[in-house]
């Protein structure tokens, strides 16, 4: 699946996750967020960058690790990304669909 976002031609998985990690920019995140009806704040962006850093380091992602990051607690994470704290944030962070069960 291909989409043009902020002037860039990007490829996505069937579930709507970006397939090219390095193509991500903050502007792309903002555009993707609109599709999820989320207005991205600095706090959102901090979470996205944290997820990208963890993903790049090869760590498995969980809402628990975000909760321990010092950026936001788990309740806050649910408020930032309603209906899918890890799935939606991963989508906006330009990383693959999370595979963790916690």
């Amino acid at each position: 699946m291909e989409k043009t976002i902020s002037g860039q031609n990007l490829s996505f998985s069937e579930d709507g996750y970006m397939t090219d990690f390095s193509a991500w920019t903050e502007d792309i995140a903002k555009e993707l967020a609109k599709e999820e009806n989320i207005e991205l704040t600095d706090k959102h962006m901090e979470v996205l960058k944290f997820l990208r850093k963890k993903h790049e380091a090869g760590d498995s992602l969980s809402i628990r690790s975000v909760g321990k990051s010092g950026i936001v607690d788990i309740k806050g994470l649910y408020q930032l990304f309603p209906g899918g704290p890890l799935k939606i944030s991963s989508k906006l962070a330009g990383i693959p669909k999370p595979t963790s069960c916690v």
């Binding site: 969980s62 963790s100 916690v102």
Partner: peptide, 17 residues
């Protein structure tokens, strides 16, 4: 595996509603 202790797990569940 990042699976929390019982109390923390319950807190995670209630934090999400």
């Amino acid at each position: 595996l990042d699976i929390p202790p019982v109390v923390e797990f319950l807190e995670m569940i209630t934090a999400g509603g």
